[in-house]
């Protein structure tokens, strides 16, 4: 069986430095893959490569058997890959529900249809109280949830989460972890980059660890936590694998 998403020997150079070096990994349908690595390891670059924001210098990315390498971000979005931004990028002059409607338009062409899909998605992430709120007045935690809602309102097959926990309170982290864990059962495959490691360790079905642009380990979360290469990569970094 071929993989759902396959990253094959992908490299990306910025001027003379290699941000991502010959990275290969595969994601099966229904998986919740955790992607971890120290700061500057190349996780966000990898996301931008999959989402079409950057083109790889070498290598191929295959989604559902078809190459997506070199596609534009909006084309990647249309074939069912959604992503969040590490630093939230809301539409500043629109309300919360309108922000999500723009993603919903991908599947619901009518304004009314998009509005109800957006409202349902917002309710899912616990933002039902903020439909008409201007995004300018949202806290960081709420903006992160808005990012998640925007990605899910696209009814994606695969979603790329880029640090959706940063800035959340412990209670919010708990709720969000539970929510993300429920996505595969709803038919959404997840690739998740997170700095709040205990959340991702608890929920991921499998982990891939990258450091300095290269894959250094892969496997079940429990095994990863004991891997000497991983521990070495994180040495000097604050890490809490509890």
């Amino acid at each position: 069986m071929s993989a759902f998403l396959e990253v094959r020997h992908v490299s990306r150079a910025f001027n003379s430095t290699m941000a991502v070096k010959d990275v290969s990994f595969a994601v099966q349908q229904g998986e919740l893959l955790g992607l971890m690595g120290p700061n500057g390891a190349g996780k966000s670059t990898l996301f931008n490569l999959i989402a079409g924001v950057l083109a790889p210098t070498a290598g191929e990315i295959i989604f559902e058997g078809k190459p997506v390498t070199g596609r534009k971000p909006y084309e990647v979005a249309r074939i069912g890959i959604a992503r969040t931004f590490q630093i939230p990028k809301p539409y500043r002059q629109l309300s919360v529900v309108e922000n999500v409607m723009l993603s919903a338009f991908l599947r619901e062409k009518s304004v009314a249809g998009a509005r109800s899909l957006a409202e349902a998605t917002l309710a899912d992430v616990g933002l039902s109280d903020y439909f008409g709120t201007p995004v300018g007045s949202l806290t960081v935690g709420l903006l992160k949830r808005l990012e998640v809602a925007r990605a899910l309102a696209m009814r994606p097959k695969l979603v790329l989460f880029d640090e959706i926990m940063a800035g959340l309170t412990p209670t919010e982290v708990g709720a969000m972890t539970k929510f993300v864990a429920s996505l595969p059962s709803r038919g959404i495959t997840v690739v998740w980059v997170e700095h709040v490691l205990y959340a991702i360790m608890k929920t991921a079905t499998r982990m891939v660890v990258i450091n300095r642009g290269e894959v250094i380990a892969g496997g079940a979360p429990a095994a990863i936590a004991r891997d000497p290469a991983v521990v070495k990569a994180y040495l000097g970094e604050e890490m809490d694998l509890a």
Partner: peptide, 15 residues
């Protein structure tokens, strides 16, 4: 509106 307010986000939403 989306293109005006944030082009990257608009593009990621399929616009």
């Amino acid at each position: 509106f989306a293109i005006r307010d944030n082009e990257d986000a608009a593009s990621a939403a399929g616009v």
